[in-house]
């Protein structure tokens, strides 16, 4: 079953893997993105995510449909958590099942790339020295002194 949702509570990744398992699926790839303590030498204390919820869920469902068209026989479930997250907690989970493993890996990686392009979710990093909305994965903002 395909599920695409924004959630506020801690994510149980296995639930999404279970949703995509089927008798004809030989492979399930489950990706989880976790809050990392250190990014480019800057220590993150915790993160906060916000989303434009209805559009985010719609966009994630569109990505799932793209995947199921591009890789025949795949099924996808995606969830992203919003609110405050601590170090190590799961921010995003992507489950893809497929008859064969190659498609499951490729389709899963495609999902996370597409989420990072188009799904209206924003991360605010809170460091020891300040906080900032992160708007571009390639440009880490300079730390501002408080």
């Amino acid at each position: 079953m395909s599920v695409y949702e924004i959630v506020r509570e801690p994510i149980d990744p296995q639930r999404y893997a279970d949703l995509v398992v089927r008798p004809e699926a030989g492979a399930v790839v489950l990706f989880t993105g976790h809050v990392r303590e250190w990014t480019k030498g800057i220590r993150t204390l915790h993160l906060s995510y916000d989303a434009y919820v209805p559009m985010a869920e719609k966009k994630m469902a569109q990505i799932g449909r793209e995947v199921e068209e591009k890789w025949e026989g795949t099924r996808t479930a995606i969830a992203h958590r919003i609110g405050e997250l601590g170090i190590g907690e799961v921010a995003v989970v992507i489950a893809v099942s497929s008859p064969h493993r190659k498609a499951a890996y490729e389709a899963n990686e495609y999902c996370i790339e597409r989420i990072k392009q188009d799904v209206p979710i924003w991360k605010k990093e809170i460091w020891e020295t300040g906080e900032e909305w992160i708007g571009d994965q390639n440009r880490k903002p300079e730390v501002k002194n408080p």
Partner: peptide
């Protein structure tokens, strides 16, 4: 109409 700054989910 929603103003969508560069997204940073994931």
């Amino acid at each position: 109409a929603a103003f969508i700054p560069p997204v940073s989910g994931g």
